[in-house]
Design a protein around this nucleic acid. Structure first.
Lengths: 225, 225
DNA sequence: GTCTATATAATGATAGAC
DNA sequence: GTCTATCATTATATAGAC
């Protein structure tokens, strides 16, 4: 009568199906989404045919990987202490055994496809909440367009992370801890500096920009009521 | 005796070899680097065999595309008026017929391979120069680590651009003007706001960070002599 | 459930005619 | 220089034995 209690202690306790899925997540994170089913099969220690037997197609397997990774990421409700969305996101990779999921997400983001878009939208929605909290607590300056700022901060943080990995020749995304290690360098300081002191000396050009766009018919700004 | 004067007015004036190369740049920008030789051939209006005849292999063709795109990008010595590296870069796509080259570069950057790394390094080196000029002119605040800041600004600007294209479902990179159009929205304002006012209220945490890292053995900062 | 063997489709590259 | 036809390789997916 302990069948309801599903323990997942060691790798060997996983069903072959779950083992294949985890191997696929690792393989995709390590070498990208053109990892072949044979390579995945080798990682999982099964035959290639068994993968098709269980999942039907490589695409279906990937969808299941997407779902599993999203589940793991959402399970980590990062408490919104941080200021920099990039750092908050980065912390995910350190927590527990979520490294492969983190790398998979990065890979998906870089890929530019629909699943990456979903991951990204998820992060933005998440960041909106804890940015609002940080503004309320007085830690973060308010913005005239909170939504646009959150979108900017998340895309720049994550996108910058991706390009810095390229810059450092990091091609294997399966080890989350190693990814973070190669990112925490002098740029962390530059980020903090930018976030505290800004970049431009003349803040009047901000107002000039507002006036200018107010005249146009684009209305890119939310009206301040 | 006018053989030295090589006019390149219309598409038909190009040699088939150059036409194939340009078709390849367009194809790679439009659908990524797994565009097939046959697809490229169709764009160029030639047979697939002719491509191999001229270039030997798909890889060699891509290398020639890399070289041509880099040549075009370097030919555009963007006068360093701007503040935001992202905007400066973005302006490239508007100038003349460089749209496909711009899209090709973005595609290469997203790809994460070695050629993308070279494009990126090129942009960083470029930005270092006109950031220094902007600091000297008093438009941009000085940084305690100029190199780290430039790397941060470029990777975040370009990386953010890439992810915002994903967010907007933009998958075809062959039309530079259209790419820019989908990027200039409310985020432009958020960028300017961030660059003028910063993000964090308490600037003392910057000093705290400096003190903290000074104690560690990492020495991520340049010594201030 | 799992494997081996095979079918099928697509891709990069080659060979030879014109 | 250019094309058509073909080869060799690789990938996913299927079929059937155990």
């Amino acid at each position: 009568m302990y069948s309801l209690l599903y323990v997942r202690s060691a790798v060997d306790d996983l069903t072959a199906r779950a083992r294949i899925r985890d191997a696929a997540i690792n393989a995709f994170a390590a070498t990208g989404f053109d990892a072949t089913v044979r390579q995945i099969a080798a990682r999982a220690g099964v035959s290639a045919g068994l993968i098709t037997h269980h999942f039907g197609s490589k695409e279906a397997l990937r969808e299941e990987c997407d779902a599993e990774v999203l589940r793991q990421i959402l399970a980590l409700k990062v408490e919104g202490i941080g200021m920099a969305p990039g750092e908050s996101v980065a912390r995910i990779a350190q927590l527990g055994d979520y490294g492969p999921a983190f790398g998979y997400m990065l890979r998906s983001l870089r890929d530019g496809g629909e699943s990456g878009r979903i991951f990204l939208q998820n992060m933005i929605d998440d960041a909106r909440d804890y940015t609002a909290a940080a503004v309320k607590s007085g830690m973060v300056l308010p913005s005239r367009d909170e939504d646009a700022r959150v979108e900017l901060l998340v895309t720049q943080s994550v996108g910058g992370m991706l390009l810095q990995l390229s810059l450092r020749g990091q091609t294997d995304f399966s080890n989350g801890a190693e990814l973070i290690r190669s990112l925490t360098g002098s740029t962390s300081f530059a980020l903090l500096e930018l976030y505290t002191q800004g970049l431009l000396t003349d803040s009047s050009i901000l107002d000039a920009f507002v006036d200018q766009t107010a005249q146009s018919n684009h209305e890119p700004l939310k009206k301040q009521k």
